[in-house]
Design a protein around this nucleic acid. Sequence first.
DNA 1: CGACTCGTACGATAACCCTCGTACTACGAG
DNA 2: CTCGTAGTACGAGGGTTATCGTACGAGTCG
Lengths: 122, 122
Amino acid sequence: MTDTATPGRALPHPEREEIRLEGVLHALSDPMRLRIVRELAAAEAELACSRFDLPVTKSTTTHHFRVLRESGVIRQVYRGTAKMNALRRDDLDCLFPELLDILLAAADRQSVRLGDRGRSTS
Amino acid sequence: MTDTATPGRALPHPEREEIRLEGVLHALSDPMRLRIVRELAAAEAELACSRFDLPVTKSTTTHHFRVLRESGVIRQVYRGTAKMNALRRDDLDCLFPELLDILLAAADRQSVRLGDRGRSTS
DNA sequence: CGACTCGTACGATAACCCTCGTACTACGAG
DNA sequence: CTCGTAGTACGAGGGTTATCGTACGAGTCG
């Protein structure tokens, strides 16, 4: 089925049943990771790590993406030399209905409230 | 207004506008603190610290309650020798509509899913 | 007053987390 | 094959956190 992913370089993801609320909350409690998730949600598509312009080094970026993946928030897959990232909306919505949307709305709201110029209403 | 609180022993709380989403998520990402908040929500009333039967020492309990207070999740006030704890529902609902309820529902759901015997449906 | 309960303060310890830099691997283009 | 780009691995530094134990303070009750 249109397998453009590179085989033999699979990344470990938690199964849906293994995703823990505490882990998700911890993952989202870091400003950098919350920002990543918000951009991902706004894009409504897969994004390569390199598409994010974060104020940290590549190493740190890798670290944050791994935390998000290991907590079950995003799914990562290699596509050529790029690593594509997507929110695990289906899994999260199934486990914790509405949580993701409410969380994103809360983050948007806070951005507006704090005059967070740049990425408030996208 | 029926001031039963002990004066001269006020505790520092963040103002509503100072509450940060990241801080709230971080506070709730600890199992012990999530448990406290769930019990508090289920009680729908103020509860003294001593009403919680947590598997940690008193020192650690004090620590967790302080984290919850400083992140803006709960409000604490002295009443005689007891310290009463209440969720800051009004503030949280105002800042992040529905978030608290969805979060509590997610926690309940996970408890049921994991067969968390003891305090699932109260 | 004296004893008791509730909670705090402080210090210690071990674990964790965010960040970085450097060296490295994997893939694609020429 | 060589080079460039995307991302990883590893290790270290510096800060924060969760936990404890012991000693202490603040009220309440007898």
